[in-house]
């Protein structure tokens, strides 16, 4: 990676980072401060680092990351809302030696796609599920998600989420961790450099486990939504730390027994 470059004004610099070949040269459409672009970067860096671009097939969801395939330079399929893990199952079953991941938001994975999520994990499909949980429907304009916190104000819970009427935020990652066929289940974030390093490690391990045919790996990334939360990016980081993480505590929920 480290190469010497001469800038126009004659200054010699060392290149220490460049866009990996697994990312296309297309600017992200995501809102400023949104975690999606960071998670896309990390995910594709891992694919580049492991040298698995030719083996990797991704599945994009319906939600803000519906255009994930604009940025990820791997073969990809765009799934119907909630069905990404079923589509990933179809791909993996006919190509068991390839590496398959789905990338899904909370509405996709934990509301409309709950059945597919649970049953894919229950079969132990040998895939990686990346679950972006920001507690809100970003793409459709900030409606309540299955993971919106109690009292959270959204456009469909304008007076705050009333748990007596609409129930509690669904901790689907805890459900997935209970299933015997899942291999590695973890909850991460991408809100500071240390968190990003941990996330990268989790993604790397998940692809390695998949190469070893260990079963379903599931990574929840507790994320922010500046536009949907109506906060500045800096405010969202504070909200994550003070409100989201206490409800969705970070860390591994299930690790391989050695």
């Amino acid at each position: 990676m480290e190469e010497k470059l001469i800038l126009e004004d004659g200054i010699e610099v060392e290149q220490v980072y460049r866009r990996p070949e697994t990312l296309t040269d297309v600017p992200y459409h995501y809102c400023p401060g949104c975690s999606h672009s960071v998670v896309h970067n990390v995910l594709m860096e891992v694919v580049a680092d492991l040298g698995i671009q030719e083996q990797t097939i991704g599945v994009a969801p319906v939600g803000c990351s519906v255009f994930a395939y604009h940025y990820m330079n791997v073969d990809m399929q765009e799934a119907a809302h909630g069905r990404a893990s079923a589509v990933a199952t179809g791909i993996k079953r006919v190509m068991p030696d390839k590496l398959v991941f789905s990338y899904q938001g909370d509405g996709d994975l934990a509301a409309i796609g709950t059945a597919e999520t649970i049953h894919t994990a229950n079969r132990g499909e040998n895939i990686l599920v990346v679950f972006i949980n920001n507690g809100i429907y970003g793409m459709t304009g900030g409606q309540m998600a299955p993971t919106s916190l109690p009292g959270m104000v959204t456009s469909t819970s304008p007076y705050g989420r009333d748990v007596s009427m609409v129930g509690y935020p669904l901790k689907i990652t805890e459900l997935v961790a209970q299933l015997p066929a899942t291999y590695y289940v973890t909850r991460q974030s991408a809100h500071n450099p240390n968190a990003v390093r941990k996330l990268k490690k989790a993604i790397t391990k998940s692809f390695e486990y998949q190469q070893q045919k260990k079963g379903t790996c599931f990574i929840e990334v507790v994320s922010n939504c500046p536009s949907g939360w109506k906060m500045t990016p800096v405010e969202t980081i504070k909200y994550l730390e003070e409100v989201m993480f206490p409800y969705y505590p970070l860390g591994d929920l299930k690790v391989p027994k050695n």
Partner: peptide
């Protein structure tokens, strides 16, 4: 949707 995924993979 499994049919979609598998067909998309050329099966």
């Amino acid at each position: 949707n499994m049919v979609y995924g598998a067909a998309g993979a050329g099966a």
